Simulated assay, not measured.
Amino acid sequence: MKKFLGWIITIAILLIIVLCMGPFYIINEGEQVVVTRIGRIVDTHTDAGLHIKVPFIDKITTYPKRVLSLDGDPQPIQTKENLFIVVDTTSRWRISDPSKFYQNLTTLNNAYNKISDIIDSSTRTIITQNRLSEIVRSSNIINESKTTKSDLQDEDTKEIENLVNMNSTSESVYKGRSELCKQMTIEANKLVPDYGVELIDIVPRQIKYSDELTESVYNRMIKDRNQVAQAYRSLGEGRKAEWLGRLENEKRTIASEAYRKSEETKGMADAEAAKIYSEAYNKDPEFYSFWKSIESYKKNLKDYPATYSTNMDYFKYLYSPSGKK
């Protein structure tokens, strides 16, 4: 009995010693490990759970199993039409084979550097084979929107666009930005599997002109806006001249019509006055002659202090003592 208890105690002590040496390790969700023994890979695990290792001999290297992101550095690239643009990409990737990853890259920092070089190379290869319009656009909707918009525009806007040549269609896109991103990913995936990596996608996060080209683009934009402004001014001046011409014609028409009516009124008044004069003359010719002479004296003699006459007939009513001739 004592001998049996001694064996149990010995086994318990050995078990405690083994447990203290740490033969177990845990893989969490979203992790995968590579087990190496004296520098040689002996096993890999991608499932979460409790696993066993040889204490002091096996080394556990843990890698993430989730999708990782990589933001590249901006790099100047020449397009097919020899325009320099600065492209800043972002990509998603994951470790597909932890054994190859450990053999070729070992650490995540090494992986970031290597994958960044591969992405930069594939991005440069694809962009240099395509025009700028293919890189920044994914469809020809800009031309379709211009056609729809032109149908809704008024005549003045269409005239302005004709003046500044704004009706020209943009360059057609045959591949587009999305297709080029797929091509970049395919090009990069030709190399990354050797490192135990799967590249999910590559997306240009930012595309801008180089510093040398930016100033030229801004100058062209300013020139285009000045042309549009000048077109509006020219159209405004034309409309102004048109409205002023209409105004002048209307003024002449109104003045002519007013003059015609005034002449008609004056003619009617003169006729009415002549009629009244005729009726007055027929009633009393002597009084009519006297009245007209007095009116003439008031009009013609008011500015003369003295009047000399040789018995003219004009002054017949002045020289007659009775006021008669």
Results as ranks from 00 to 15, higher is better:
K302V: 06
L70R: 09
N140H: 11
E279I: 10
I95E: 09
P98Y: 05
I115P: 03
V35W: 01
K100D: 00
Y259T: 07
R239Q: 08
Q206T: 13
I60T: 01
G267I: 07
Q183Y: 07
L108F: 01
R37V: 02
K146L: 05
T46S: 14
N28H: 10
Y209T: 13
L163F: 13
E212M: 07
A12E: 02
I60V: 11
N28E: 11
A111Y: 08
Q75M: 05
I8W: 06
D284K: 03
S122H: 06
L318G: 01
N219L: 04
L83P: 04
K261R: 15
I200Y: 06
I254C: 01
K275I: 09
K251C: 03
K175L: 15
S96N: 13
K182W: 00
K251H: 10
N82E: 13
D194P: 06
E179V: 09
A231P: 04
I207L: 08
S262W: 04
V86T: 07
I85S: 08
E212V: 10
I17C: 04
K100N: 01
D284F: 03
N189V: 03
N82M: 12
L318M: 09
G176Q: 05
V192F: 04
A258I: 01
S145I: 11
R92M: 12
E263A: 04
L70G: 09
A229T: 11
E279T: 10
Y259K: 14
R40A: 13
